[in-house]
Amino acid sequence: MSTAATTAEPTPNPTAAAEPRSSREVYRDIVAELLPGDERLICLDTDTGLFTGVDFGTGQDRYLNLGIAEHTLMGAAAGLAREGRMPLVNTMAAFAASRALEAVKLDIALNDLPVRIAATHSGVSAGHLGPTHHGLEDLAVMRTLPNMTVVVPADAAGTDTLFRQALTLPGPVYFRMGRNATPDLPAGPPLELGRAQRLRHGTDITVAACGPYPVLAALAAADELSAEGISTGVLHVHTVKPLDTAALAAAVRPGGTVITVEEHWRTAGFGSAVAEALTELVPVRVRRVAMPDAFVSVAGGQRYLVERGGITARAIAAYARSAVDPTRKDL
């Protein structure tokens, strides 16, 4: 898979004029569309409720609800994949990355099998359900597994484009989605799996963001900073593994600063992946904006909890100002 930076011309976002949709709803509709016509696809569910009332037509016998049994889900998917099928497995991110991890590692990743792990309720998008259902460790876990591709769409259109591309890959894919609708991103260059999408050009600072609210916060910070004369570039990094290291390295000058933004614990996630990669390529400073290293102790909506965790345009802009002028005390 190529990791070169894209230079394609911007194209309109097809969902921009409509009400925003959740990534999991878009994914559900893709499955309903493709299942009847592709004998390879088998949809394995764990009582998520996502497919309630969905008519799969001639593909109905390839929808199987295994109940709340996430470890069994991954093992069954691996067996089906070994027999030439392409299982689409459905569970929450917290369960895929923890409860079912042994089976993901040994049954799927070890054997490099074409299983698509559709993980919903990622980050704090299940904020009303508490820490048991928060998925703040999944990027750290999944990106360490050999053979695993890790994808984080940031809006409905991105979910559609990136999931269809993910179906063409030969090995396993972890596809991270939220629970409810999030705002659509502005138009940008066409999305391509494995290639960061440049949403803003800048020469003073680069912000690399992953996920819906982090990308929106990065764009808002870039607008604020640009108004102050600080030229700020924004990279939408939807593919965490393989990471587009070429685009990241090209976006920052030696001695400069990259600010990473993610809806994930600060430890070992997207920001850590960027830091690991760039230390081998170019001498830069990496500042990470992420959820604090603590369990979220309150219930609330996704946007509220993300902003409560400090993932805001204000925090990004403060890091940027201090990087451009170290004498500033904004933080």
Rank of each mutant, 00 (worst) to 15 (best):
G300A: 03
G269W: 09
A275E: 12
P10S: 05
G229Y: 09
S122G: 15
V289M: 13
E276N: 09
P20C: 03
R116N: 08
L167I: 03
G123Q: 06
A249R: 15
A320K: 02
R321N: 03
P87L: 03
L193G: 01
Y63K: 04
V289H: 10
D38R: 07
H133D: 08
A209F: 05
G202T: 11
S125T: 14
L305H: 01
A251R: 09
L305D: 00
N147Q: 14
H238M: 08
R28M: 12
I205G: 03
L219A: 06
L248T: 13
A249K: 15
T144K: 02
F295D: 09
E276P: 13
L169E: 04
R200C: 09
G59S: 04
L305W: 05
P326L: 02
E9W: 10
E228Y: 12
K329L: 14
L41P: 13
G178M: 12
P190M: 05
A246C: 13
A126I: 01
N147F: 02
A317D: 11
V173M: 05
V115T: 04
R266D: 03
L278N: 05
G301A: 13
G178H: 06
T161Y: 00
R82N: 10
A277Y: 02
A157L: 02
G171Y: 03
E224K: 15
N90P: 00
A217H: 10
G310Q: 06
T159P: 04
H121T: 08
L136D: 04
V234K: 01
L281E: 15
G202M: 07
G84W: 11
